[in-house]
Each structure stands twice: as structure tokens, then as C-alpha cells.
């Protein structure tokens, strides 16, 4: 990956210590610093659904070690998470819950669709599976594979980091009006019978 340009020349900081105080000031635009810190402290929510969840856990474990990217803190509470890795097939019964968890996450929030089932329904083109999680939540990065290996997931995560850092994702979100053209029906007014959540159209 490319070096961070915003920090200027930081290569001598470690050598100099306090002596280099005069030339060790970091100057950057505040947006760049914000983007940089967003990219580097991206905590995923535990949202394991199916086979991909096993690979997601394997990625977090000793051999592949997501901690190298500051990503090992899988938060159980969506309130503390920035990134939702949708790992596995999303059933019609799970879709409203997925949306609810997404809504509970704090902005800015990102979504990785892990595996073909989450991305497009995969081989399960049938009544039970939502054909692509992007009908429910806006997806930022799609990871292919069934299931994607840990390397693929790491590549997806690094792609996400890079896109957050360059501001590409925020820009895209402003362009398409805050989401992937998601359309969720408003809940029925008080007193009427409860309707199932209507999933969006593209």
C-alpha cells in the first residue's frame, strides 16, 4: 500500500525523539486526518450468518490475524461498530433484523458483503434468500467467493480502508443520496395491522 502522503515525511520521527521536535510537526487538513483515523480504527460488528462467518472467524484468529489491520475488535453491540461484514446468506426472515442492526450502527458506517450469497444470492436462487444484501443495506465492498478465503476478506477490508481514506466512499454516498438507492416502506400508522417490512427495489 502507498505511504500516507498527508503526514509529510515521518520517517525520521522515531530516530530523532524529542530533539527533532522542531521539524516533527505534522501538518494536514482536518478532513484528511479524520478520514485517516476513520480508516485505521474500523471496528467490525459480529454479524456472522453462515459458512462465511466461519471464515471470518478464521481470519480473526491466530494464523491470519486481523489485528494487524486494527480490525480484531469484533463488537457484539452494533452501537460500537463502524463496519458490518455481512458474512453469509441473508434469508427473508433475517433481512429486517439485518436492516435494524444496520440502523443501530453509528455514522459513518460501512458494509462489506462477504461471499456470493450475500452479494447476489449465490447458488440459492429461491424463495428463501434475499438476492443480494444490497437490496437491504448499501454495500461498499463486495468480496467474491463461496466462501471467500481469509485472503479475499483481507483484500476486501484493505480495499475498504483505502476507499475510506481517499474519501471515495463518502463521495459516492453523497452522489447517490445517502445509500444505494435504498427504498424502505414507511411502517403502517398506529392502529393498523403490522405489515412485514417491504424490501427495497433498485
Amino acid at each position: 500500500m502507498r505511504r500516507l502522503p498527508i503526514l509529510g515525511d515521518v520517517s525520521r520521527v522515531a530516530d530523532d525523539g524529542l530533539e527533532g521536535l522542531e521539524h516533527n510537526f505534522v501538518t494536514a487538513r482536518i478532513e484528511d486526518l479524520v478520514k485517516w483515523s476513520r480508516a485505521r480504527s474500523c471496528w467490525p460488528a459480529t454479524f456472522g450468518l453462515a459458512c462465511c462467518a466461519i471464515e471470518m472467524m478464521a481470519t480473526g484468529a491466530a494464523h491470519y490475524d486481523l489485528a494487524r489491520y486494527g480490525m480484531e475488535v469484533f463488537r457484539a453491540s452494533p452501537r460500537q461498530a463502524d463496519l458490518m461484514i455481512v458474512a453469509g446468506r441473508v434469508s427473508q426472515k433475517m433481512a429486517p433484523i439485518l436492516r435494524q442492526i444496520y440502523d443501530q450502527m453509528m455514522e459513518p458506517k460501512w458494509v462489506i458483503s462477504m461471499g456470493v450469497c450475500a452479494s447476489s444470492g449465490g447458488m440459492f436462487n429461491n424463495y428463501a434468500i434475499v438476492q443480494g444484501v444490497d437490496q437491504v443495506v448499501p454495500v461498499d465492498v463486495y468480496a467474491p467467493g463461496c466462501p471467500p478465503g481469509p485472503e479475499t476478506l483481507m483484500h476486501a477490508i484493505l480495499t475498504l480502508h483505502e476507499n475510506i481514506r481517499t474519501g471515495e466512499l463518502t463521495r459516492r454516498r453523497i452522489d447517490n443520496d445517502g445509500g444505494a438507492a435504498i427504498h424502505v416502506e414507511a411502517p403502517p400508522p398506529e392502529g393498523t395491522t403490522e405489515q412485514p417490512v417491504q424490501l427495497g427495489r433498485r
Binding site: Q92, K93, G121, N126, Y127, Q131
Partner: peptide
């Protein structure tokens, strides 16, 4: 297995698999 408000019984042979063309 299915949501409580689901209509129909999917494993019956007169119910379609429910293929959705992926766009």
C-alpha cells in the same frame, strides 16, 4: 422456519422455487 406472516408452503410441488432474475 419461515416468518410467521409468510403465505404458502414452499415445498409443495405447485409452488415455484421462486427464482428471482438477478439484475
Amino acid at each position: 422456519l419461515l416468518p410467521e406472516e409468510w403465505e404458502g408452503h414452499p415445498l409443495r410441488k405447485d409452488v415455484d422455487t421462486g427464482r428471482i432474475p438477478v439484475q
